[in-house]
């Protein structure tokens, strides 16, 4: 187990290093000099040169790269050209905002998606199944910018019960979280439904019934645990996606998250913040994957490593 964990952590580091390298090159391949962006078109060449020296952009590319890696090891990404503060400080707030949004969305999706999926599987092709299944298809098809704008129209403009954006009040998280949760919820409903239907046909479910166990226990204990594995995989991947892919929702609701920070920083050629954002996102993604893989072992004893 320790060896497996060591191996997984090592390979995660390689992934992070690769991602850091790619973003380092990619952001510099985008036309536009950060110093020019900051100073504006009226800047003199001397001012530009001075700023480039200040930000450490005057050395060779390889030198900058080595410097970037060396500092990254201590989680230091330099200071932001745009915001005038260390990049780590800039992203730590944004990361907290994004993480709380993603977790809120995940909670909503799980708490609603699971019961609905189970309800569908218990009476396949019954009326509740038909309604829920078609609603979940719709939910997945609706673009989140549209859902977001509709929610704002209804709850902020017409009913005036929720703020249309920002993160100043606790209830401000509700609409962005619901918008973000909707596609995930739809996936979970259909995943739980099909997974449970498959598992309910298995021999051990018959055995559980032959033991005289009540149906809630047969489904809730014997069947559910076996269909968690595919669900955990997808939920893990989706949660990783939620971290980085919330850009649209964050924009619609002016949510001060990582996605919005990343987009703004790219526009401003704010190298340090872009690099910091990407590394943090990749770190989050890799950690979630590792957690999912470790969960497999817990959920399914057949894939337990080293036992």
């Amino acid at each position: 187990m320790t060896r497996y964990l060591g191996y997984r952590i090592l390979s995660s580091l390689v992934v992070i290093l690769g991602a850091a390298t790619i973003i380092f090159v990619a952001i510099r391949a985008v036309p536009g000099d950060p110093a020019l962006v900051v100073l504006g078109p009226s800047a003199t060449p001397e001012q530009v040169a001075a700023l480039r020296t200040e930000y450490g952009l005057d050395g060779s590319l390889l030198g900058q790269y080595m410097h970037f890696l060396a500092r990254m090891a201590t989680f230091d990404f330099g200071s932001s050209f745009r915001l005038g503060m260390p990049a780590t400080q800039a992203i730590s707030q944004a990361f907290t905002a994004t993480l709380s949004l993603a977790l809120a969305a995940l909670c909503i999706a799980l708490m609603i998606g699971f019961p609905l999926g189970i309800l569908c599987a218990l009476r396949p092709n019954g009326w509740s199944d038909r309604i829920i299944s078609s609603l979940s298809m719709t939910g997945q098809a609706l673009p989140s910018f549209w859902v977001g704008i509709m929610l704002v129209m209804i709850f902020s403009r017409m009913l005036r019960i929720l703020p249309s954006g920002g993160a100043e009040t606790p209830e401000a998280i509700l609409m962005p979280a619901v918008t973000l949760a909707l596609p995930l919820l739809s996936i979970i409903v259909r995943l739980v439904r099909s997974g449970l239907l498959e598992v309910l046909g298995e021999g051990y479910v018959q055995t559980a019934r032959a033991k005289g166990l009540r149906e809630p226990r047969v489904v809730g204990r014997h069947a559910l645990r076996n269909m968690l594995i595919p669900v955990v995989t997808v939920v893990g991947l989706e949660l990783g996606g939620l971290l980085g892919g919330a850009v649209i929702v964050e924009t619609v609701f002016a949510w001060p998250g990582l996605g919005r920070l990343l987009i703004d920083s790219i526009a401003a050629r704010d190298y340090s913040v872009v690099q910091a954002c990407v590394v943090v996102l990749v770190l989050g993604f890799v950690s979630i994957n590792l957690i999912v893989d470790l969960l497999y072992g817990y959920l399914d004893p057949r894939v337990r490593v080293g036992s």
């Binding site: 298995e202 021999g203 051990y204 018959q206 055995t207 559980a208 019934r209 032959a210 033991k211 005289g212 166990l213 009540r214 149906e215 014997h222 645990r225 076996n226 959920l299 399914d300 004893p301 057949r302």
Partner: peptide, 24 residues
């Protein structure tokens, strides 16, 4: 009838490979 299963009537299934729950 389910109440009678297990206590008054027991059943052995054809395929022991699938009749046991793999996760417990």
């Amino acid at each position: 009838t389910r109440d009678l299963c297990g206590t008054r009537m027991g059943m052995v299934f054809q395929d022991p490979l699938t009749a046991l729950n793999p996760v417990f």
